[in-house]
């Protein structure tokens, strides 16, 4: 998009100097990527073809782990299905919720500083505390939620929540939304909203645009890189859902919340089948990679970058 005149000064063109600078900026990450990320990933890739119990030397078993996952592991498909079901509900809800919350906080209301802090509070509640909290909130007998349902709504047959396979997932989703709407996603949207030039709104106002038109034609298009980022990360995060189920339901009852990452964790740190867990992880890796790739492919049709460099 920008004009770069190839000046062949001192043997290295502008393009060449740009490349060198680019690599220099990249250098710390390149080292980090190799040492702390790709190295361990390569190791786990090797483990996925081995029987590895953490303590003893890995024993190469070829494709056995993968074969077992696809043919013998009953929980593989169960957990994959549950994870996708969770993601399909949670990702759109939390994106819309977070965007709405961010926009609300961007309205220059008096006390915005306080509101912003309040919205962020669930995210700040320590997991150890919130685990106890939610177990108590959702306790079907003596918890406040069912107390409210019985005594204020007059519904005798209140849900069993984490005790009932039909309700456990809903409980986890409510829990997740509580933390997600005002969390990191909202902060990132806020940072993005700050980047929308004010004069574009002014121009739109002069053209007589209403709130909706401005939202539709100014906010959304300029926010697409942020929406895109939050969506990609949201999907990856939802497919890796772990903590909520780990602390609140332990994957139960009757495998109703046995998410894929819980399956990996169980295999890795409860049964100590690190090889098998690595194979599971690489399958998830592959699935998420395909998803992300598709999103990037599709993104060129809807994401607008002000300063992108393409050739």
């Amino acid at each position: 998009m920008t004009v770069t005149t190839p000046t062949a000064r001192r043997g290295l063109g502008l393009r060449g100097r740009e490349a060198v600078a680019g690599y220099l900026f990249l250098l710390p990450w390149l080292i980090g990527l190799l040492c702390f990320v790709i190295g361990p990933m390569v190791a786990s890739g090797y483990f996925s073809f081995a029987k590895y119990d953490i303590v003893n030397t890995p024993e190469f078993v070829g494709l056995k782990n993968y074969q077992d996952i696809f043919t013998k592991d009953r929980l593989f498909w169960t957990s994959l299905k549950l994870t996708f079901r969770y993601a399909i509900i949670v990702v759109p809800l939390s994106l819309i919720g977070s965007l709405a919350a961010a926009m609300l906080l961007n309205q220059a209301l008096k006390g915005t500083t306080l509101f912003r802090t309040f919205f962020f509070l669930p995210h700040l509640t320590p997991v150890a505390a919130s685990a106890v909290l939610w177990a108590w909130m959702f306790n079907p007998d003596v918890g406040p939620i069912n107390y409210f349902i019985r005594n204020n709504l007059g519904i005798e047959n209140a849900p069993g929540w984490f005790r009932d396979p039909q309700w456990a997932m809903s409980g986890l989703i409510i829990m997740a939304m509580w933390g997600a709407i005002g969390g990191n996603t909202m902060l990132i949207f806020l940072a993005g909203l700050q980047g929308v030039p004010q004069e574009l709104y002014e121009a739109a106002s002069i053209d007589g645009a209403g709130i909706w038109t401005k939202f539709r034609n100014v906010t959304i298009p300029l926010l697409t890189p942020t929406i895109f980022f939050n969506m990609v990360l949201g999907i990856i995060g939802a497919l890796r859902v772990f903590t909520a189920a780990f602390v609140a339901t332990a994957g139960g009852p009757a495998y109703a919340t046995w998410f894929y990452s819980l399956h990996i964790y169980t295999r890795a740190f409860k049964y100590f089948e690190m090889g098998y867990a690595s194979a599971l992880a690489w399958i998830l890796f592959f699935i998420m990679f395909v998803f992300t790739f598709i999103q990037f492919r599709a993104s060129r049709r809807w994401v607008y970058y002000a300063g992108e460099v393409n050739e």
């Binding site: 396979p165 009852p253 009757a254």
Partner: peptide, 10 residues
């Protein structure tokens, strides 16, 4: 988990 399936009527 499979006993839970019985207790919960699944």
């Amino acid at each position: 988990n499979n006993l839970q399936a019985i207790w919960t009527g699944e």
